[in-house]
Simulated scan of single mutants.
Amino acid sequence: MVNFNGTLHDSSSHLLSIENRGYAYGDALFETLKVVHGKVLFWEDHYFRLMASMRIMRMEIPMNFTMEFLESEILKTIEANHLSKATVRVRVNVHRIEGGKYGPISNDINYNMVAERIEADFYTLNEAPYTVELYKDFYVAPGLLSTLKHNNKSINVLGSIFAKENKFDNCLLLNTNKTVVEALNGNLFLVKNRAIKTPPLTEGCLKGIMRKQLMELIEKLEGYTLEEAPISPFELQKADELFITNVITGIQPITRYRKKDFTTEVSQLLLERLNTKIRLS
């Protein structure tokens, strides 16, 4: 079942036309949520990121788009798909209504929600080999738009094809300044000695929800320091540990980059703290 503007439909067919601005111009935003047995993880952070992104995109925020309303719509969608007692991935899509060319005729929006079952209730550490490479065919532009979850994801799509063709598990993206920004599907953290570094938003990385959660945990981690600073490609092979974060996977350790193998000690420690935080919230 698909939720389109609050109405449930059996299928997504015939809901979006070829004139849809998300399709025609990438004039759309989305949020990817993890919902565990009816509890939306980090819902407040997701909600405020979506509202801030809509303002940046000059979309009209409906009066009824409260945190409570959208959460109830998410849970309604999950229930309609008989997934209330499961762990679910929900994608909330917001697009400007049809009309106009580059210049829209209105800033009003439509929204839709889709849900699918996923396996793990809590976050687990994938300790299987996980190899990455730099993707250098195209570069991320530093700036505010790059921090949004919008539908202009051509670099991520092409990077994913490159990774598959070359048998990598993921790729790291560079910005136009040739510093490392993030992975194809999440934010990047680098550990060297007891210092943990992640690129600042000004580098063009996604304003990740899991990034925010882990930064809060790292700041409370005794014996470790956290720094938001650009990461040079030369730093990757000197690191002790690299890991990728997103709200669905949690923490994905990188085990190998080129000829360098990495440990997973900090990843394991943070994952334990993350699951504890979720249980207590």
Rank of each mutant, 00 (worst) to 15 (best):
G103M: 08
V132K: 05
K34V: 04
N177I: 08
H46K: 13
I97R: 08
A141Q: 08
D10S: 12
L29A: 15
S154F: 07
I155Q: 00
F189R: 14
L125F: 06
R89N: 07
E165W: 03
L29M: 14
T176H: 09
L33R: 04
I209G: 05
S11N: 06
F69E: 14
F162W: 15
C205H: 05
T225D: 03
E241C: 02
V2M: 00
C205E: 00
R194M: 10
A80H: 10
R21H: 02
A229L: 00
I209C: 01
V114C: 09
F234I: 01
N81W: 00
M67E: 12
I109R: 02
Y23Q: 12
E228W: 04
L214T: 14
I244P: 03
L16K: 09
S281F: 02
T264H: 02
E68Y: 12
I105W: 02
L217G: 12
G22L: 06
D240M: 03
L226R: 03
T7L: 01
Y139E: 00
M54K: 12
G250W: 10
T276Q: 07
E98P: 05
F138Y: 03
T276M: 03
N110S: 11
I109Y: 02
R117S: 07
Y25T: 14
R96W: 01
T202C: 06
N246D: 02
K207D: 14
L125N: 03
I161E: 04
C171Q: 12
T245P: 02
L83K: 08
F4N: 00
F168I: 03
T198P: 04
L16D: 01
F262M: 05
G204L: 06
M113G: 12
P230Q: 05
N170L: 15
Y139S: 04
A229G: 00
E19T: 11
P230Y: 01
N156M: 10
M67V: 14
G204Q: 05
G208N: 09
A86V: 02
A141T: 09
T32K: 02
M67D: 15
K136N: 13
V94E: 13
I18L: 14
G38L: 10
K149L: 03
H46P: 11
L33S: 07
T245G: 01
P142K: 00
M57H: 01
F65Y: 13
A183Q: 11
G38E: 15
E73Q: 13
M67I: 15
L271D: 05
I74V: 15
E73G: 12
Y111V: 09
F168L: 06
Y102I: 08
G26F: 06
Y47L: 11
N64E: 15
G186F: 11
E272G: 05
T264I: 09
Q268S: 06
H150R: 00
K207A: 13
E227V: 05
V114Q: 04
L16C: 06
S12W: 01
A183L: 11
K76G: 10
E71P: 09
K178V: 12
S72E: 15
L33G: 08
L41I: 07
F243A: 05
